[in-house]
Design a protein around this nucleic acid. Sequence first.
DNA 1: GATGAATGAGGATTCATTCAT
DNA 2: AATGAATGAATCCTCATTCAT
Lengths: 207, 207, 207, 207
Amino acid sequence: MSPRRRDAEGTAAARAQRRAELLDTAARVFAERGYAATTIREVADAAGMLAGSLYYHFESKEAMVDEILAGFLADLWDAYDRVLAAGHDPRTTLRALVEASFDTIHRHRPAVVIYQNESRHLVLGDRFRYLGDARTRFREMWVRLLEEGAADGAFRSDLDVQLMYRFIRDSVWAAAGWYDPGGRLPPRAIADQYLAMFLRGIEPHPG
Amino acid sequence: MSPRRRDAEGTAAARAQRRAELLDTAARVFAERGYAATTIREVADAAGMLAGSLYYHFESKEAMVDEILAGFLADLWDAYDRVLAAGHDPRTTLRALVEASFDTIHRHRPAVVIYQNESRHLVLGDRFRYLGDARTRFREMWVRLLEEGAADGAFRSDLDVQLMYRFIRDSVWAAAGWYDPGGRLPPRAIADQYLAMFLRGIEPHPG
Amino acid sequence: MSPRRRDAEGTAAARAQRRAELLDTAARVFAERGYAATTIREVADAAGMLAGSLYYHFESKEAMVDEILAGFLADLWDAYDRVLAAGHDPRTTLRALVEASFDTIHRHRPAVVIYQNESRHLVLGDRFRYLGDARTRFREMWVRLLEEGAADGAFRSDLDVQLMYRFIRDSVWAAAGWYDPGGRLPPRAIADQYLAMFLRGIEPHPG
Amino acid sequence: MSPRRRDAEGTAAARAQRRAELLDTAARVFAERGYAATTIREVADAAGMLAGSLYYHFESKEAMVDEILAGFLADLWDAYDRVLAAGHDPRTTLRALVEASFDTIHRHRPAVVIYQNESRHLVLGDRFRYLGDARTRFREMWVRLLEEGAADGAFRSDLDVQLMYRFIRDSVWAAAGWYDPGGRLPPRAIADQYLAMFLRGIEPHPG
DNA sequence: GATGAATGAGGATTCATTCAT
DNA sequence: AATGAATGAATCCTCATTCAT
């Protein structure tokens, strides 16, 4: 690799790196205080710079959440698409999706918190229409999975599929509110216990 | 009862009634747009008056959420305390608590949404310390119940109790985000299906 | 007139009156310092209020210039249309138009200054497209008049009509830059001398 | 001449050349969007560099307009002084001054536009006091010329000399607003037609 | 000569709140 | 009870300018 090549890569990479750092900081602060209630100054403080300086890197406060949420969703769909491409049976697919979800919470905790708290409001603006699209695609995928599972006997068929979907969705994503990346339970352990509850409930099994 | 007395009561009642109406409106708007993102003017618009006029009824924006959340919590604990006073076994108690929760969502949907989205941030201010207290009391009650149930064989004992607690808490309260008071399923029907999932999971039962 | 009627009129009129006063002040300041270089605070200072208070009356700084310019143009076209409706010969029409122009400068001096200095830039924005339309209509009217006059022998026909148009337009409107409403020469006197120069030039006449 | 000397001259000339190019660009942008409304970044964009880079060449934004306006005025007075030094009669002098003016507009169009739009505001700052001086000297020269012409019968004496002065000044310089250096009419042709209108008006001559 | 990142002052605008009527 | 006008602090954002590289 020539020095020139390395240089070019160096600055482009450095810039991307800086953006990523700043977005991480912003995501943390937005998640902690709420997007609307967070001032640009608070983000800048947390990043160790002046409020105006953030505008060298980002167009606006809105552009920041946008990038945060879009990044999280892209990552999430990457993981989901890999799961779906494997073509497992419904039960295995559900396991894999829940595991992928907790992995994503692990890697994007603040983004997930923001998504949970703000997407309802943000989606009203043109810029965030994609949040609604993602929600729709998400729901369709899950509902299809649950219907297939109910049809082939993997899941109970006496329950409202929409309700099952919301139940799983809400309990998984709400976990971002308390998940601690450095905590006692790693994401897989949480996923396992959640799956145990999803699948067999909290009652002891007969036999 | 003297006419004077009746008058006084009449106006006091009328006043309380007006406050309640305005709080309902405010709760709806706060829930829809987020507390921080909602302006007093938007609340006033929804109530058919000018922004300044709200200050005849309430001291501040903060006083409004305060009253909204306090009202919801009072109602919730009323219901919970009745359940607990009945002294049922853990399984029956859990059923009753979940039913009471969905009833409360039915009656206080916007307040619950606000609580879900904002209590994390609000609790930092002195005025809302009681939110933290309620959270603590809530958690202690649930954890005790789940521990008792695990001890006496009503619930599985291979699961992390903290996780069970969060799982139930999150899935129930998150339902405020989509619950439709005029929708197809009444609160009890939703409670029943949620209980079915909590207790036995979504897998078909053997035998 | 009933008291109620008077009241209603009173407040509506009072409001319109206040707006007009504030616009007058704003126009004066914009004309003096240039629109872009003027801060809202300077306008507010000149109006004896705080910057934020102006936003009770106007949506934005842009809305202020908009209203100032639109008001001036409406007034101008009122006057022009009355002249054109009279159906005079070209020479008389030209006299009347120039007189009407100086009258308008007399009544809207700051607005004319703003128009002269800023319309070129403002017209680029969607909101001010009407400035371009007015300019076009203005040019077409004048060019038609000068062509008719040249055709029927009222005006010289050895000159470029576009040039004649610009010559008259520029010299008349530029007068807003120095016209003093309380000065020695009333608008009609200035119009007369300008007309003398337009029509016969500054050379003495033979014979 | 030593190589060193030539080098120094070479770089000095190159530097002057670069400055001139950048000033041309800046003048164009300032004229187009207005000085106050133009950002340094816009100038830099037009020059194909970054905003910060301009500060290698110029001390400040103000220094740029300063240099632009001073250059135009120096050039203008060069031309005027040559005319005045020739000692022609008033009528010939006026012709020559108007021609020189249009030549200057041809060479410094953006600077003239800036001068027209901004000198009123700029002159308030210490740095631009010379704009006021130039204006004064300019007026005195023209008024003296018109008075001499009126006295010796070259010009009409029934008109207000101040008004004649403003009339000529405004119509000539306002032409910078529409003059097109590559257009149909060369500066001399425009000067001729303007002189025809100044001197004899737009009415046909008797006889 | 030029870049990229940052500064810091200031500008338009918003908004909770006040208060005379 | 409610209105209309205003306040003043805070917010997002812009931009001329600096400076290490």
